[in-house]
Amino acid sequence: MELKVSSRSHGDHTIVTIVGEIDLYTAPRLQSEFTRILDESTTTLMVIDMSGVEFCDSTGMNVLLSAHKRLRERGGVLEMAGPRPAVRKILQVTGLDSVFTIHEAVPEELLAAEPQA
């Protein structure tokens, strides 16, 4: 399955939307997208919209952890929004649900800050 990654930044926050499966084959694409965002922006809050992620293996979790660590090193925060039950279960089993702040959906105040098209 293909992985689609899109991002939009507004002020000090970036919303990254992921659709598809994050696994050994798609994780490098996600890693390079996180690297690009972190290299090109001054984001201090990154919210990963996981509502379109159907599956995430340990490779994918490592990519998310790596982005979390890199953002934290520069004083930022990485949060997740809307993980499906299968992904939420992986987060709980691995204990990562205590590492990441997890929202039911992308916080309204961040969506409200988005420029209107």
Score class of each variant (00 low, 15 high):
Met1Phe: 04
Glu2Phe: 13
Glu2Thr: 14
Glu2Pro: 15
Leu3Arg: 11
Lys4Ala: 12
Ser6Met: 10
Gly11Ile: 06
His13Glu: 09
His13Met: 08
Val16Arg: 02
Thr17Tyr: 03
Thr17Gln: 12
Ile18Met: 13
Ile18Arg: 01
Ile18Cys: 15
Val19Ile: 14
Glu21Pro: 07
Asp23Thr: 07
Tyr25Asp: 04
Ala27Met: 08
Gln31His: 15
Gln31Val: 08
Ser32Thr: 13
Phe34Thr: 03
Phe34Arg: 02
Thr35Asp: 14
Arg36Asp: 09
Ile37Trp: 08
Ile37Asn: 07
Leu38Lys: 03
Glu40Thr: 12
Glu40Val: 05
Ser41Lys: 04
Thr43Tyr: 02
Thr44Gly: 07
Leu45Lys: 12
Met46Ser: 02
Asp49Lys: 03
Asp49His: 04
Ser51Trp: 03
Val53Arg: 10
Glu54Met: 11
Phe55Glu: 03
Cys56Phe: 06
Cys56Arg: 09
Ser58Cys: 12
Thr59Cys: 13
Gly60Asp: 00
Asn62Lys: 10
Leu64Gln: 01
Leu65Met: 15
Ala67Trp: 00
Glu73Pro: 01
Arg74Thr: 13
Gly75Arg: 11
Gly75Ser: 11
Gly76Phe: 05
Leu78Asn: 00
Leu78Gln: 01
Lys89Asn: 05
Lys89Gly: 02
Lys89Ser: 06
Ile90His: 04
Ile90Pro: 01
Gly95Glu: 03
Leu96Trp: 02
Thr101Ala: 04
His103Gly: 07
Ala105Gln: 14
Glu108Lys: 10
Glu108Asn: 05
Glu109Cys: 09
Leu111Gly: 08
Leu111Cys: 06
Ala113Lys: 14
Glu114Phe: 06
Gln116Ser: 13
Gln116Leu: 13
